[in-house]
Design a protein around this nucleic acid. Structure first.
Length: 205
DNA sequence: AACTCCATCAACCGCTGCCGC
DNA sequence: GGCGGCAGCGGTTGATGGAGT
């Protein structure tokens, strides 16, 4: 990490320079905005209320903490790690094996990982938990997914429940990347009347 | 080799429902 | 009944790698 702070611009000049850029993006949705200066990339958190007073430190690589607001208020909210998990963070599995997969907020805190409970839960369910089946979806599984989807619709967790070792995320991804396309192609080849097709609504559980 | 496009999949976000107070 | 916190779900995003040009 390169230390931040070589250059500083202060709010007024900042706004004048980058307001047009921000106007082109969905600022309400964005939490960060990437800016480019002579090839260097800076990720700027958008604390819009204090934007004009924001001091911007630029270097080749800046972390979010480097860019945190300098005012005292609003600092209480913890900034968690985001993005891909490291093998070091996967020690979460050891913690859960001892303490159980309950109270994700507590797990997140007590395990010493700088992750939110939600992130821990997802990592456990989709990757760390034992009995996860790795590898490609088999033809039998695919057939089962197709039939269950016809029956249940996009109820991925219910479908996953019928496929031991598979996660809802995995099935959802598989559906979106493989099966939905397959079905679309089939649909184009064989034009069936909508009344003949079964939908989740008209299938009895 | 360099570039673009696309598929895949891990992870995030926002919403909903449940539960305890 | 209302509220807040939490878990779970499904849609979406973003990083990555491979194929194609």
């Amino acid at each position: 990490m390169v230390a931040a702070g070589d250059l500083k611009w202060y709010g007024f000049a900042w706004c004048a320079l980058f307001k047009p850029l921000l106007a082109t993006r969905n600022v309400c949705k964005l939490k960060e905005c990437d800016l480019w200066f002579d090839g260097a990339i800076c990720t700027l958190p958008l604390f819009t209320p204090s934007l004009p007073h924001y001091s911007l430190s630029l270097s080749l690589s800046l972390s979010l903490s480097d860019m945190a607001p300098k005012s005292s208020e609003g600092l209480a909210k913890k900034v968690y790690n985001k993005g891909a998990w490291t093998s070091e963070e996967d020690k979460l599995a050891q913690y859960i094996e001892v303490h159980g997969a309950k109270k994700w907020k507590t797990i997140a805190t007590k395990s010493g990982l700088n992750r939110c409970g939600k992130s821990c839960r997802l990592r456990w369910l989709n990757y760390l938990r034992p009995n996860i089946k790795r590898g490609n979806i088999t033809d039998e599984e695919e057939d089962l997914i197709l039939r269950l989807h016809k029956l249940l619709g996009n109820r991925w967790s219910l479908i996953a429940g019928r496929l031991p070792g598979r996660t809802d995320n995995e099935i959802k991804n598989y559906w979106n990347s493989h099966l939905s396309r397959k079905i679309n192609q089939k649909g184009k080849m064989t034009t069936t009347s909508p009344a003949q097709e079964s939908t989740p609504e008209n299938c009895r559980l």
